Computed example of a mutant assay.
Amino acid sequence: MAVFAQAQNVTVDAGLRSRLLTAIQRMQENRARRAVYRQTVRELNALTTRDLNDLGINRTMITRLAREAAWGSAQ
């Protein structure tokens, strides 16, 4: 009986460890995506209106373009 209880604890620990590692990885990915978003917004806002017009970008499009750059067009 003790062997079964010990094996069950190992399985629970492995499942918990797996979920924890997945959560940490997801947080790291989200942090990287937010950094891409902020950098894109910062760089596009730094451009002059004329430069943006040359690129075919209106200032109102900056946040949408940054979101697409960070998370893709599905969001």
Rank of each mutant, 00 (worst) to 15 (best):
T60F: 03
Y37L: 08
A32L: 10
D51N: 09
L21D: 13
M27T: 07
V3I: 11
R17W: 03
D54C: 06
S18P: 00
G72E: 03
A2V: 08
R50M: 09
L52T: 04
L65K: 05
R34S: 09
R19Q: 14
V36H: 02
L55G: 08
R42W: 01
A46K: 13
A23E: 11
A2L: 12
R50L: 13
M61N: 10
A66K: 01
V36N: 04
R34W: 10
A70N: 04
G72N: 06
Q6T: 12
V36K: 09
L55W: 10
R59E: 13
R38C: 04
G15Y: 02
A2W: 07
L52A: 01
I24E: 13
T22G: 09
I62M: 05
T40M: 12
Y37N: 04
G56V: 07
M27Q: 15
T49D: 13
N30M: 12
A32W: 08
R17C: 01
D13G: 09
E68Q: 11
R31W: 07
Q75W: 04
L21Y: 04
Q8M: 09
Q6S: 11
R50G: 07
A32P: 03
M27E: 14
R34D: 11
S73A: 12
T11V: 14
L21T: 13
A35R: 09
A69W: 03
M61D: 14
Q8T: 08
N45T: 13
L52N: 01
I62Q: 03
R34Q: 14
A7L: 15
Q39C: 01
T22P: 00
N30R: 13
N53P: 01
Q28C: 12
A66P: 05
A70Q: 01
A32E: 15
R67A: 07
G15A: 02
A74F: 02
E29T: 09
R38M: 06
M1E: 10
A46G: 14
V3H: 08
S73N: 08
S73T: 10
Q25M: 05
I24Q: 14
Y37G: 00
M1D: 08
I24P: 02
R67K: 15
E43I: 01
R67E: 09
V10H: 07
M1T: 11
T40K: 11
A7R: 15
A32K: 15
E29M: 05
A5Q: 10
T49C: 05
L47C: 14
A66E: 02
I24N: 11
